[in-house]
Computed example of a mutant assay.
Amino acid sequence: MTFASGDPTTLLLVRHGETALTPERRFSGSGGSDPELSATGRRQAEAVAGVLATLGPVHAVVSSPLRRCRETAAATAGKLGLEVQVAAGLREADFGVWEGLTFAEIRARYPEELAEWLASPAAVPGGTGESMDSVTRRVEESRDKLLAQFPGQRVLVVSHVAPLRTLVRLALGAPPESLFRMELAAASLSEVAYYPDGSASVRSLNDTAHLR
């Protein structure tokens, strides 16, 4: 693959820090509660802010509207003297009645629905939730707006597992099932560059060195 000349637009992808639900690996989407960062999550947000301050210029900070992301984003924005911009399209998926449950609990209570969700991006989780096809459409729209608004710049994007995995999947041109083969830890950092010719390059994925 050849890249067109000119500076790429770089999205620095950060998953929010931990909430009380994160260590238990409970589904926490946009259809349930809106938890704040835990004490560990706040420390993680400060660690992300510290490393981002050393990685070169950041021209904008954009966050999901959910509280855990806005709190994570605010830590970096404060260090950089930037305002947090909110993008509704970067919110987490709505998991319907699965909200607050672990994967094991969902598998025990809703085995057929879970199997369908894992097999098809068109499947609706939890009966009333949001399909991954729907997530993909709004994430694509949010991505395209950012690329148009910040050409050649570096933008911090603070979001959740499903939207961030989707951005990486689309950059790689990978199939939908690849979403379930990526690890994105709380407060992890990934980086995707988008070039003027329309191509993209995943530069890093799930970097957690700043948390050690």
Rank of each mutant, 00 (worst) to 15 (best):
K79Q: 14
V192G: 01
D94L: 10
T208H: 00
Q44D: 02
E113R: 14
A123P: 11
R212P: 09
E141K: 11
G81R: 04
E83T: 15
R169Y: 07
L12N: 06
E183W: 12
S199K: 15
G152L: 10
F3I: 15
D207L: 11
V155F: 01
T136L: 11
L184N: 00
V14L: 14
A53E: 11
A104Y: 04
F3S: 05
V61E: 02
V124E: 03
V168T: 05
A49K: 01
A45V: 06
F95A: 02
A4E: 12
R169M: 09
A148K: 10
R42A: 07
E183L: 12
P163M: 05
Q85G: 14
S159I: 09
A148G: 13
Q44R: 02
A185M: 10
Y110A: 04
A174H: 04
E113T: 10
A87F: 13
S28N: 12
L146P: 00
Q85D: 15
D207M: 11
V202G: 03
G17P: 05
H16P: 05
D207W: 12
L172M: 15
P125D: 11
G96N: 10
V135G: 04
E177W: 03
S190C: 07
L21Y: 15
E24N: 06
S204M: 12
T136M: 02
L52C: 13
L118E: 11
G78I: 07
S142Y: 03
L184E: 04
G6E: 06
K79T: 14
D144K: 12
T19W: 02
S204D: 02
D34N: 15
T2I: 12
R107M: 12
E36H: 14
R143T: 04
T128H: 13
A104M: 11
G198D: 03
P65F: 05
E191F: 01
D94G: 06
T19A: 05
V51C: 13
L12C: 13
A47L: 13
R138P: 08
Q85C: 08
L52V: 14
A119V: 08
G81H: 04
A162G: 13
V158G: 02
L189Y: 06
F150I: 05
E116M: 04
Q85T: 15
E141Q: 09
V58L: 12
P111D: 09
G29Y: 01
R68G: 02
E140G: 13
T136F: 04
D207F: 11
P57R: 14
T40I: 09
A115H: 09
P35C: 07
A49S: 06
R70Q: 14
L12P: 04
E83Y: 03
V61D: 00
G126D: 03
G152R: 11
R43V: 13
D133M: 07
A39F: 12
V58R: 00
G32T: 12
Y195V: 06
L156V: 09
S131Q: 06
G152W: 13
R26T: 07
G56K: 05
D197R: 10
R15A: 03
R68M: 08
E71L: 10
V61S: 00
V158M: 02
C69G: 05
E92L: 02
S30Q: 10
A47K: 08
E112K: 14
V168W: 00
A186V: 13
E177L: 01
V157H: 03
K79E: 13
L156R: 02
D144S: 11
W117D: 01
